[in-house]
């Protein structure tokens, strides 16, 4: 009986050894990793062929091989990495600020229904404003250096974190709240052992969306006013009509965004091991 029951523990039980990679399983795994690559590869080959035949003008859309060569150059010279790091550092600062405030505000609003009513009108008006609309305003207020860009990012990541924290807290299973009531748990226990863990998946969702938006808004802010960063790299390349550099910049934004999302998901899966939906 004990052995049958251990089956339920799956991979987390120390007793269950990892399954050896049989040929069938390996093939299936390989297939699931390769599948997302098929369509991009086909497109790239097509694009390359069209470029070689001279059907696409290289000053507008360089061939993938040319873009690849430029990318290698920019990486080797450290230029691309430098701009990416500048942007990432801005995102880090902005997200810390925005997500931090979002978390605190979300807790206050989520735990006090009156607080939600009190701020409902303000949030209702502020929330739909696109981040890019803030950029000129913030430049007027704070100048064109770091402050305005970081504030833009902070605003961008604030809302999704706020909304998801409130949502997570509100959606705490009433049945589990009743259990806490029956066992007469203190307010602190209720908050830290019940409400926050219950809201954690939602908080993570908010963080993921927030960081995604932050990454998009930093590039937006840099396009308008900056002397470093990926956005600046793209703008500057446009002035010099370097389509290949521009495209390297654009693609690197996407790749970095994907990498960030991947890392957050990894962290999420680690911290939310209890969540059957993630397994």
């Amino acid at each position: 009986m004990a052995e049958i029951e251990l089956e339920y523990l799956g991979t987390t039980a120390a007793a269950a050894p990892p399954k050896p990679l049989g040929p069938k399983r390996a093939r299936r795994l390989g297939f699931s990793y390769l599948l997302p690559l098929v369509i991009p590869l086909v497109l790239l080959v097509l694009w390359e062929l069209l470029s070689r035949r001279g059907l696409v003008r290289p000053t507008i859309l360089p061939a993938p091989s040319a873009i690849g060569a430029t990318a290698r150059e920019l990486v080797a010279s450290g230029e691309l990495i430098h701009h990416l790091l500048v942007s990432l550092w801005r995102v880090t600062k902005g997200v810390t600020l925005g997500a931090g405030f979002g978390l605190v505000a979300g807790l206050v609003v989520g735990l006090n229904p009156w607080a939600e009513r009190a701020v409902s009108l303000i949030t209702g008006v502020l929330r739909p404003i696109p981040i890019i609309a803030w950029v000129p305003v913030l430049i007027l207020w704070m100048g064109i250096d770091e402050g305005s860009k970081i504030t833009v990012i902070a605003i961008g990541s604030f809302w999704p974190v706020l909304l998801n924290v409130v949502h997570g807290i509100r959606n705490t299973d009433r049945k589990i709240l009743e259990v806490a009531k029956v066992f007469q748990k203190s307010r602190a226990t209720l908050l830290f052992k019940v409400v926050l863990p219950a809201a954690l998946p939602s908080i993570f969702t908010g963080m993921r969306i927030g960081i995604g938006i932050a990454w998009m808004s930093v590039v937006g802010a840099e396009l308008i006013a900056a002397s470093a960063g990926v956005g600046y790299l793209i703008m500057y390349a446009r002035e010099l009509s370097q389509a290949d550099v521009m495209l390297v910049g654009v693609v690197s934004i996407g790749v970095t965004g994907l990498a960030i999302d991947f890392l957050i998901r990894r962290l999420e899966r680690r911290l939310l091991r209890w969540n059957a939906n993630l397994q």
């Binding site: 589990i176 259990v179 029956v182 052992k193 863990p197 954690l200 209890w274």
Partner: peptide, 19 residues
């Protein structure tokens, strides 16, 4: 109100999934 002198086993297990 609820009190510690009364314990309850609910019809569903109602465990805390994160614990």
């Amino acid at each position: 109100n609820p009190g510690l002198e009364r314990g309850m086993v609910f019809q569903e297990a109602r465990l805390l999934p994160w614990m």
